[in-house]
């Protein structure tokens, strides 16, 4: 029996290994493409015998890639912080306060998740234009400052926080905001980790709205900047691959560093203790 389980385990591992290899193949192809000279780019499926850094040099010499990277980092991280604050605050209110119209508000908010964002783009664009935020970082951050998904996530998470803890804080003279800030948020730490990563990845990859809002190339985020490298009649594939590789790298590094938090956040409440 023991041998049988061992064989099954080996087979399962082999299957998973093959699946992982399959999943990683495009990434390996991407990495290989970045390290090939234009002459070799399409002549070898994966790595060429000669390693070349031409694509990276070309990328940094033709476009201000570092600026695009910093724009993306700024927009994504600021958006996460802003969303984290407002979404958790709203989640806290919906989880721990009773007020008139709480349920309809919740239903209304959840129903907005069913609307495709494209439907709202025309009126949103006009609003942002009238606010004078077109072609600004604020034009990207303000419309996404509150995430309904985040509110729902934090509401569910904060529901787990015992009311007794909040009552005790009130007896000690804590203000409602301080309860949220010093008691509820530290207790919701696993959810903060998961939300930060989900929100960061969403904003990092956001394409359509930044494409509409941003006009000056100096303000472009990475997806828009990479899209500019896609030509209609001509295509520098190697440069595009180098840019794509560098644009996914920060997300991978961030995920590696924060994966424990992310998994803890996703599994929080999965097992009742």
């Amino acid at each position: 029996m023991k041998t049988f389980y061992r064989v099954v385990r080996i087979l399962v591992n082999l299957f998973l290994l093959a699946f992982a290899a399959l999943t990683l193949t495009p990434m390996v192809w991407l990495l290989a493409a970045t390290l090939k000279s234009p002459d070799d780019l399409f002549s070898y499926t994966f790595f060429a015998p000669r390693i070349s850094t031409f694509n990276f040099r070309d990328l940094f010499s033709t476009v201000p890639f570092h600026r695009y990277m910093i724009n993306s980092v700024f927009v994504a991280s600021t958006m996460v912080i802003v969303q984290l604050f407002f979404s958790s605050l709203a989640g806290f209110a919906l989880a721990k306060y009773d007020f008139k119209g709480k349920k309809p508000i919740m239903i209304l908010m959840l129903s907005t998740m069913m609307l495709p964002s494209q439907v709202l783009m025309a009126p949103l664009y006009e609003l942002i234009y009238r606010l004078g935020l077109v072609d600004s970082y604020a034009g990207l951050i303000v419309p996404g400052a509150v995430s309904v998904f985040g509110i729902f996530l934090f509401r569910q998470s904060i529901l787990q926080v015992p009311d007794e803890l909040l009552h005790a804080a009130r007896i000690d003279g804590c203000s409602e905001f301080r309860i949220y800030w010093d008691i509820v948020m530290p207790v919701s730490r696993p959810m903060i980790g998961a939300f930060c990563l989900i929100s960061f990845m969403g904003t990092w990859n956001s394409f359509l709205w930044p494409q509409i809002i941003l006009h000056k190339t100096e303000r472009f985020t990475l997806p828009i900047a990479l899209n500019q490298l896609v030509g209609l009649y001509q295509q520098q594939y190697g440069t595009l691959m180098a840019g794509t590789f560098l644009s996914v790298l920060p997300v991978i590094i961030l995920f590696m560093l924060l994966q424990k938090e992310f998994i803890a956040g996703l599994t929080a409440g999965a097992v009742k203790g």
């Binding site: 912080i81 984290l84 903060i192 980790g193 930060c196 990563l197 924060l258």
Partner: peptide, 12 residues
């Protein structure tokens, strides 16, 4: 608030 929020704040 954990390393995720801290790293976002520093990056921002």
């Amino acid at each position: 608030y954990g390393p995720a929020a801290l790293s976002m704040l520093i990056l921002s």
